[in-house]
């Protein structure tokens, strides 16, 4: 009974931290409340840059590998390495070799974002019916026209699905950016001395909420990306 009460009270304090400002434990600066908005902006900016780099690399590469039918080995290999290496290890390695700072953290997170996007783009293109591609070629479409008009539109839901997975990964992992000297919503989680227990829990809740919001947003985008009519008949039969 008292354990439950204690959890509820911790939770209450964390929520209070999210919505109201207070002086930091060491004194001197305001934390919580609107101060979190700044951290949120940093967090989203870092995630967006990392995701953009990941998309810029993985989508064209995945499409090219899928279209040419080459590099099954490469696409699958990268996807599996991505799955096997824990994100924290990846980032630690990155800092060890390249140092800290926004650009390096963004690159490390981009590296984390690439495998799911690459694998999905590759698979999405390969899953387009061979007969559909054969017909497109047989009617006189050039390679780039086949990609643009046939393969990419049909692969788009899977491509966006890969971006969705990566976006959630990146948003969640960006919480460890302060370890490398870059501001994000991870600050209160890592700097216990400044924020205290309620700050750690409060920031964790915000990170989780942002991850869920990202998932929902990209899930919606994925549905909008589907070029096929909904399974419900548009015309009564």
């Amino acid at each position: 009974m008292s354990a439950l009460a204690s959890i509820l009270s911790d939770f209450g304090e964390a929520l209070e931290f999210i919505f109201t400002e207070r002086e930091s434990r060491a004194g001197g600066s305001e934390i919580g409340g609107t101060q979190l908005l700044g951290l949120l902006a940093d967090h989203l900016a870092l995630s967006a840059v990392a995701l953009a780099i990941g998309i810029a690399v993985a989508v064209p590469l995945g499409i090219w590998l899928g279209h040419t039918g080459r590099g099954t080995f490469l696409a699958v290999g990268i996807a599996n390495v991505g799955r096997a290496v824990p994100s924290i290890a990846l980032i630690a390695l990155f800092f060890a070799f390249l140092g800290t700072g926004f650009v390096n953290v963004a690159l490390a997170l981009a590296l984390l974002a690439i495998p799911p996007i690459l694998a999905n783009a590759y698979v999405g293109i390969r899953l387009v019916e061979p007969d559909t591609v054969d017909a497109a070629r047989g009617m006189g479409m050039t390679g780039p026209q086949i990609v643009r008009r046939v393969e990419l539109p049909l692969a788009l839901p899977l491509v966006v699905g890969g971006i969705r997975t990566s976006a959630v990964n990146v948003v969640a992992t960006a919480a460890i950016a302060p370890l490398a000297g870059v501001s994000s919503l991870g600050d209160p989680i890592i700097a216990f001395g400044v924020y205290g227990e309620s700050g750690r829990l409060g920031a964790s809740i915000v990170v989780a909420a942002v991850a869920v919001a990202t998932e929902v947003t990209f899930g919606l985008a994925q549905r909008l990306a589907d070029p096929l009519p909904s399974t419900r008949r548009t015309v009564p039969a």
Partner: peptide
């Protein structure tokens, strides 16, 4: 400039 029809048609589903 050459018409092309295949067994499984290969229509564009989208």
């Amino acid at each position: 400039h050459i018409g092309y029809v295949i067994q499984n048609v290969g229509l564009f589903p989208h």
